[in-house]
Design a protein around this nucleic acid. Structure first.
Lengths: 251, 251
DNA sequence: CGCAGTAACTAACATATGTTAGGTATGGTG
DNA sequence: CACCATACCTAACATATGTTAGTTACTGCG
């Protein structure tokens, strides 16, 4: 059985987070994946449901969100090719938020019990996955700051910086250019603003010469100023990963 | 060596999250704790520092926060007796936020390498801790929603509901009465508002007959309405914990 | 007991962002 | 190619929350 490139990508990321053995790697590859394609807007899991599968994103984008009692949506995070979706829910009893396809996407599903068995029998894989979820947490924390304490222009600039760096770190973009597969309404829901205001602020970023946009393609013209307007520091992304005090064995 | 009651509390919580063996419990008790008392406002860890210790809160309250480039503070979470502070940082290279004492507090410090060894040799302890951090994440997500999509009255009501339930679940409060050791400025920093507005909204909650306050003591008068004003659902707290598909062995 | 520092509280005024209500472009589909 | 749905865009107006600037009430300490 040949292995999907996105799975290789995940394995490489895990290796930066914990010193995995060949047995660990084999155990990951041997997971009982089932492959599936989802249309944009399809739900992977809904709030209130018990999590049955954990999905590895093979292509496309997904996002997490919650809806308030007033019917307002808040996007909690956006996920891209090569990321494990829903370790956040898989070890808890009930999903506390929704995970939905942002674009058409391919996933490899792993039944939750198989995932639990894997991490029990392979503690280092467990640690790599744990670190993955800790980095998710770090991003959640930064989003609290973004939404709680920055004005609209900064919020959006910050979001654009984050995507640029995460996409580049994942090898999905380069040269500060990328496809941002989100509507203005979705950008609003990610920043705690309204679509109308996102529109104003997006133009403002253009007028200031920080970015250009053509449809969903974003190009960052002046990274330093965008970064400064967005009060952005990459530290919270922990792009170089996990636990430097334990080095992976040479191979 | 007698064991501190807060450590017993943690162990009991962990047992609801993974089926721990006597060996696991012994390993937790055998951690090289060093005890320390910190004054209110003392820092446990600062953003940018490499994490050296992971602290177990034996008494008192702590909080996490970040400060923006504009100098505005955003509180990210509040922690109470019996919680492990800083597993969020301990498995990453550099702390991406500050952890500070909210009140005078006692902690038991565990050196990070000892903690890492523990979870490698005792995978079930690792899983219990992982689940703890996943619940932290769930709370972070709810705070994104709170700050991003609820108005000031709801935000504060939501926060008060969360504290009531978490304190009660930890056995630190009962009858919807508790000490909330936060100034109005801190409440503002936790909700993304200003102290002036917190003051207005706090009075409004009193006027509406939802709560009373005397100094730092909060009493919830009308839980159902407070809950409804705060758009509060306890699901995200995962109070009954982790992984019900695997039951702890009878003892 | 008085002082100093911190926290609580208030009022008048300012503004960033939301709301409403549309018009215009775009892209997919029969 | 025409239609429909969706996304984008804009203007005028509304408002929740912020800002400034101060007064008052505690609390701990010398």
């Amino acid at each position: 059985m040949d292995i999907h490139p996105a799975i290789g990508r995940v394995i490489r990321r895990f290796e930066t987070r914990a010193p995995l053995t060949d047995l660990d790697l084999a155990a990951i590859r041997a997971l009982p994946f089932t492959y599936r394609t989802l249309d944009a807007a399809a739900y992977l899991i809904r709030e209130g449901e018990p999590p049955e599968n954990c999905a590895l994103l093979l292509s496309g984008f997904a996002y997490r969100h919650k809806v308030t009692g007033e019917g307002e949506r808040q996007i909690l995070s956006v996920h891209m090719t090569g990321e494990f979706l829903d370790m956040q829910n898989s070890f808890l009893d009930v999903a506390d938020h929704n995970v939905q396809a942002l674009t058409r996407m391919e996933v490899a599903l792993v039944p939750v019990p198989a995932l639990r068995r894997l991490v029990e029998t392979h503690p280092l894989v467990g640690r790599a996955m744990w670190i993955d979820t800790l980095i998710d947490s770090a991003i959640f924390r930064e989003w609290i700051v973004n939404v709680g304490r920055r004005d609209a222009l900064s919020r959006l600039a910050h979001l654009l910086c984050e995507f640029a760096l995460r996409l580049e770190a994942a090898g999905l973009a380069a040269d500060r250019r990328y496809e941002l597969p989100m509507t203005q309404e979705q950008l609003a829901d990610a920043t705690g603003l309204t679509a109308v205001h996102i529109n104003r602020v997006l133009k403002e970023l253009g007028r200031l010469g920080l970015i250009t946009r053509d449809k969903r393609a974003v190009e960052i013209i002046d990274w330093d100023r965008l970064r400064s307007v967005g009060d952005f520091s990459a530290r919270y992304l922990h792009i170089d990963g996990g636990t430097p005090t334990v080095l992976a064995p040479a191979r």
